[in-house]
Design a protein around this nucleic acid. Structure first.
Lengths: 227, 227
DNA sequence: AGACATGGTAAAAAGGGCGTTAAGATTTGC
DNA sequence: GCAAATCTTAACGCCCTTTTTACCATGTCT
């Protein structure tokens, strides 16, 4: 059963539409348009989740998220971003947001993502880790694992097709010379590199081998900061 | 649970209004209108935070803050400034204030900002350091690190894009000859200069290298005194 | 069981990006 | 005008990344 939810945006059109829609899904949705006041309301601990717009007047919603996290709050935070500020998404996730949706968004998807977050919290599971294309850093909670360029590209492909095996040949053709030169064994070598880095910290996913089929990323795939 | 708080201002109207309002939020708020006496009271170490007005009679509140910091006190200090003395903001932060609010202020926001500061202290996190464009001084608590012009410009760019890597080419084009003359290696040299200065004192951020992508400022970025 | 294919690992070799250093050029301060 | 600080150039080499090579382990087929 959904709890109280705070929508933070300075566009009354957005907030009222969201509040109405979410109310229909059983959420006790409230709205706030000032960052300072939003912070205080969240600090009361009476909200189960929050939705923050990336553009929030003069202050950036990203700063707000950072401040919320700095204040110790752990509630799920979803960010809203217009298609045009796609570059802010990465910053948003790094500031501590749990997920983001792009405006104009599919309402059902928003609700679905909210549910995912709340279910995560209610079952006490850890937040999914994040993979940043910009910094090539795989982040699992507080720990950060930097990846090299090839390692990142390989993991990225596996993440994008999480759940389905990717053949060694396809990986080699895509990431290495498509002209057939070189040795496909380099894929195995890099899978090895990745597994080694992944074993250093317990990530919620792993790379499994499907004999004669390729490699699969199984478990909870990291969120890819697609740009 | 909020502790004792000292409000320092020579306008009785302000102090009494503040004291009353803060008391409602659980603060044991006391007032003081003389700078000298205020310093004495704070030095007893019995206060968890202070609010200082920028205009404090003949003496400036800024001088008071500087004196408080010089005495070694680390408690959170919020400054109050009228809309008209916004130019004092930089001076206030440089003197050692942790934050400031502009009169007429939103009371809830004041409380929220106070909470942020106190939470920071209670969780033992460091105060964010400050970077002043006027003096080109990077200030981390009590220690000050002067930067040269190029060093400052470089750090400024990294701060403005904190979290995302900036390419060597962009840095060179932006800060050095955009005409393509010269050697991009100068960027590396200056990154080196900056890192050397940053390593002398433990700052809450660092400059990381993302191979083939550029340099990122990661960690808690300094507050840039943008004018 | 033996032979072959597939996958895994270790280590060496190649390559280049990045960092460092020092010295020369330029500007600033006294 | 001299000295100090700052800026720029240039060269060198480390070390990270990438690739290759070699060898072992394991599964699969006859």
């Amino acid at each position: 059963m959904p709890g109280r939810l705070l929508i933070i945006d300075d566009d009354p059109e957005i907030t009222s539409a969201l509040a109405r829609g979410l109310a229909l899904h059983g959420y006790a949705a409230e709205t706030e348009n000032r960052a300072g006041r939003a912070l205080e309301r969240l600090q009361t601990g009476q909200y189960s989740s929050a939705i923050v717009d990336v553009m929030l007047g003069a202050d950036s919603g990203i700063d707000l998220v950072r401040t919320i996290r700095a204040s110790g709050a752990t509630l799920p935070i979803l960010m809203l971003s217009a298609l045009s500020d796609v570059e802010h998404r990465t910053a948003g996730l790094e500031a501590g947001a749990d997920d983001y949706v792009v405006k104009p968004f599919d309402f059902d998807e928003l609700v679905a993502r909210l549910r995912v977050q709340e279910h995560r919290v209610s079952t006490g599971r850890p937040a999914p880790c994040k993979l940043s294309r910009q910094t090539r850093i795989l982040q699992n909670g507080a720990s950060e694992t930097p990846l090299t360029e090839r390692e990142f590209e390989l993991l990225e492909l596996l993440v994008q097709h999480a759940g389905t095996p990717i053949s060694r040949g396809f990986l080699f053709d895509t990431l290495w010379a498509g002209d057939g030169s070189g040795n496909e064994n380099v894929v195995d070598v890099y899978i090895g590199y990745l597994r080694k880095k992944l074993s250093a910290d317990d990530f919620p996913f792993e790379i499994k081998t499907v004999r004669n089929k390729g490699f699969v990323l199984s478990g909870q795939a990291p969120i890819l900061n697609d740009v």
